[in-house]
C-alpha cells in the first residue's frame, strides 16, 4: 500500500529558500504571491494492506526520521 507524507516547516521557522523562490517568482511577473514555504514530499510503499496500519507506520517514520519535530510538521495526505 502506498502512503504519502508531506513535511512542512512550522510557521515561525525562517524559510530562506521559500523566500528566494518567492522573490524569483515576483521577478518573473507572478506578482500575486503572498508567501512561499518549501517542504518535502514522500511516497512510501509499505508492506501493509490495512490503510489504518499503513498510515500509523508512516506516521511513526515521520516522528522518528522523516521530520524533525522541532522545526517541521508532517501530514499523511493519502493512502492508496
Amino acid at each position: 500500500m502506498k502512503v504519502s507524507a508531506v513535511i512542512t516547516l512550522k510557521k515561525d521557522v525562517l524559510d530562506p529558500q521559500g523566500k528566494v523562490i518567492h522573490e524569483t517568482l515576483d521577478g518573473m511577473g507572478f506578482n500575486s504571491v503572498n508567501e512561499v514555504r518549501q517542504g518535502k514530499y514522500f511516497e512510501i510503499d509499505v508492506k501493509e494492506n490495512d490503510p489504518k496500519k499503513a498510515k500509523d507506520l508512516v506516521e511513526d517514520m515521520c516522528k522518528k526520521l522523516l521530520a524533525n519535530l522541532v522545526i517541521e510538521n508532517y501530514k499523511i495526505i493519502e493512502t492508496q
Binding site: 521557522v13 525562517l14 530562506p16 529558500q17 528566494v20 524533525n68 522541532v70 522545526i71
Partner: peptide, 9 residues
C-alpha cells in the same frame, strides 16, 4: 535545538 540553512543561503 536544530541547525537550519544559513540565513543568506
Amino acid at each position: 535545538g536544530v541547525l537550519l540553512r544559513n540565513k543568506y543561503l
